[in-house]
């Protein structure tokens, strides 16, 4: 029904077009809620976080700069920040030690599994695939699960300094790769 880009729908969302706004929210609600749930862990909190992310996106719509990335990525960045606010506000959730390294299937760092779900993220997937496994997992844990490097270290038993180095290298490689591939 809505064969238009996320950015076009977002423009309607920002300007108050009801149909475009509904389509925008419904198109991205699974991504936003999924990330919120991955970070906060509780469905009720995740729903609050996801709602707040959309509302923040509406309030701060003018700050979106499409030259820097997709609107979906921008919205998810807002979602991550909202989720981290939630987690910090109530105290860090207790994570089972089995959560890292994650198991295949539900593992956000499982690139093969991710490919099937996110055609629109194929560029990032390809770059993530090129990263050494340790770097990829560390970066995914910090971004997709909202963990600090110290928490990753405690959960995996990998020295904190090593985790930090892996995250830094991974993000730099990813950034360089994204910049190289921008048309």
């Amino acid at each position: 029904m809505w064969d238009v880009s996320d950015e076009a729908l977002f423009a309607g969302f920002a300007s108050g077009d009801p149909a475009a706004a509904a389509a925008f929210v419904r198109r991205l609600e699974r991504k936003v809620y999924g990330l919120a749930l991955a970070i906060v862990g509780d469905p009720g909190d995740a729903q609050d976080v996801a709602q707040e992310a959309f509302v923040r996106a509406w309030r701060f719509a003018d700050s979106f700069d499409e030259r820097r990335g997709s609107v979906a990525a921008w919205l998810l960045g807002i979602t991550r920040n909202s989720a981290l606010d939630c987690v910090r506000g109530r105290g860090r959730r207790a994570l089972p030690t089995a959560e890292l390294p994650a198991e295949a299937g539900a593992d956000p760092t499982d690139v093969d599994e991710v490919v099937g779900r996110h055609d629109d993220a194929s560029r990032v997937v390809a770059l993530m695939r090129e990263l050494p496994a340790g770097q990829r997992e560390a970066l995914a844990a910090v971004t997709l699960q909202g963990l600090s490097t110290r928490e990753v270290s405690e959960l995996t038993g990998i020295p904190h300094g090593t985790v930090k180095t892996r995250v830094r290298l991974a993000l730099r490689r990813l950034r360089d790769g994204l910049e190289d591939r921008v048309p």
Binding site: R30, Y33, L35, A50, Q51, G77, H118, T143, R175
Partner: peptide, 28 residues
Amino acid sequence: AGLASAADEVLLLAPEATPPPGFADRVL
């Protein structure tokens, strides 16, 4: 700034999940 944008792109790989019914209507 470039690194922050790259970090946002990683979030596209987040696992999706279906929110409770009526979520979009509540947001709007």
